[in-house]
């Protein structure tokens, strides 16, 4: 099919964050099936991840993450079971993965003096990509999460997107 100018884009705003007034909402991440949206909002002066069901906007509580603000770089798995993000604990940045099925918070300690900048969780939960900065240079590192997490797979497998072993 010819690819110019013929597509129509259905669009909407992500809707209210329940905070009242015009507030910043940043760094969105959708679950693979589109049911959940994570984004960052200011709460009590601290950047906090907000997890909402779509399209209702209903907020899902994340009590395990409350102590670790500011939050950065949220990323969701296929069905929204896992929420990975960067948090702060005692002045150190840390990657964590919240398992919403069990309530467990996995902390991923990283050695060295490298600063964590961003992360991306593979939708199936098998891998995590980290952007690390050291000596002014950024680079990526991949981690195998299969010893840690059960996979979170789509209800209907997609062609070409098969899981990796």
């Amino acid at each position: 099919m010819p690819a110019c100018g013929s597509w129509s884009w259905g669009r909407r705003s992500a809707g209210p964050s329940g905070l009242g007034g015009p507030t910043n909402r940043e760094d969105p991440a959708l679950s693979g099936n589109g049911r959940y949206l994570a984004s960052l909002v200011e709460r009590g002066g601290r950047r906090t991840v907000l997890l909402q069901e779509q399209p209702s906007g209903r907020e899902l509580p994340l009590p395990e993450l409350r102590r670790f603000q500011p939050h950065r770089s949220p990323s969701l798995s296929w069905n929204g079971r896992y929420l990975a993000l960067l948090v702060q604990q005692g002045g150190r940045h840390l990657a964590v993965i919240q398992d919403r099925a069990t309530g467990r918070l996995h902390r991923l300690p990283l050695g060295g003096d490298r600063e964590l900048e961003r992360l991306s969780l593979a939708p199936d939960g098998r891998r995590l990509a980290l952007e690390l900065v050291s000596q002014g240079r950024s680079r990526l590192e991949l981690l195998d999460l299969t010893p840690l997490l059960e996979p979170d797979l789509p209800a209907t497998p997609l062609s070409g997107g098969g899981p990796l072993r």
């Binding site: 693979g32 991306s120 199936d124 952007e131 950024s138 680079r139 990526l140």
Partner: peptide, 9 residues
């Protein structure tokens, strides 16, 4: 140098 990772499949 590399940044802005996005994983899928």
């Amino acid at each position: 140098s590399s940044r802005s990772p996005a994983l899928a499949g």
